[in-house]
Design a binder for these strands. Structure first.
Lengths: 158, 158
DNA sequence: TGGGATTATATGGGCGTCAATGGGTATACT
DNA sequence: AGTATACCCATTGACGCCCATATAATCCCA
């Protein structure tokens, strides 16, 4: 299976359409190249997207829960009712629903971020911010890591 | 098999008709696109709906319960005796019986909520309330959420 | 290997089709 | 007759399909 990788910035046209990057389209499963599933990210003000196949698997698991349980209802409610199947037109474009645009402050441009089995859609500036923070956090961890591993070398550093 | 997913708010007209969302109609089985089954939700002040095929599945499940158990009797009574088969007209609309409207405080608009193999019909404001509660409860139970979603990711790994 | 030729991708816009909604009228049931 | 429901037709706005173009990527041959 292909993965969603790399980053792309694309424009939203007057009709609200935006091109799904070509290599993301290629990463969709053969049988459903003209549909993606969109939903709010649980962690960020961004949108996440994936193939329909992925959702079918999740739905199967939810349906195996006890039919009368609260959990079954909650999961169905929070996951299945909050996803938006979205058609991709012949040119590879799709529409982002208004409430998802609001959620992620998207207006005229978006940044697609490959995340492996799924991808994210960000307002471009927010994407850059997110990138910085993410990197900073990594560097911080590295430092503390090296302070554990190389405590002596650090004393030479400044 | 197609699933009921996503949410839609539709209006009830003067004659009491309301459109079943297009993608819900598409999710009905090929052989019975002009009928849905309605019944009171056991858990909420809402209506639930599904295809006739699904009711057959539920009946099977009930049959598998201990024949002499109280539960068997209760379920059969609560579910099978109170379902309402409802016709869908050529334009994709149907009528919501009055007692179901009362049960769910529905007046002029409804929210359709996809739940996988079935869907719910809510009074729109109540739907929003329910959404919040459901999500809050789920966040508390993050562990069980990831147990639903994680195994899927693994299945994509090779 | 350079550079023109070909193809693919991102983007723009016209237009037909479909979904949601409203309303008239025929048919059926009581 | 009176009420309820289904069928038919109409309207509106949104969306998908088609065609077009510019830029970018790739190819291919001298």
């Amino acid at each position: 299976m292909e993965l969603f990788v790399s980053q792309f910035v694309n424009k939203i046209d007057k009709k609200g359409r935006v091109s799904l990057p070509s290599i993301f389209r290629n990463a969709l499963p053969q049988n459903s190249k003209n549909e993606i599933i969109l939903y709010k990210s649980l962690k960020h003000n961004s949108i996440e997207g994936c193939s329909g196949d992925r959702i079918k698997d999740i739905a199967d698991r939810i349906n195996k829960l006890d039919f009368f349980s609260e959990d079954q209802d909650d999961f169905a409610r929070s996951i299945l009712s909050e996803i938006i199947p979205t058609n991709i037109d012949k040119e590879g474009r799709f529409l982002i629903p208004d409430y998802l645009k609001k959620h992620s402050n998207i207006t005229s441009e978006v940044t697609f971020v490959g995340q492996g089995h799924y991808f994210q859609i960000w307002e471009p500036k927010a994407a850059i911010e997110r990138q910085k923070k993410s990197r900073a956090r990594l560097i911080k961890k590295k430092k503390s890591l090296s302070s554990i591993i190389f405590p002596i070398q650090r004393s030479y550093e400044k």
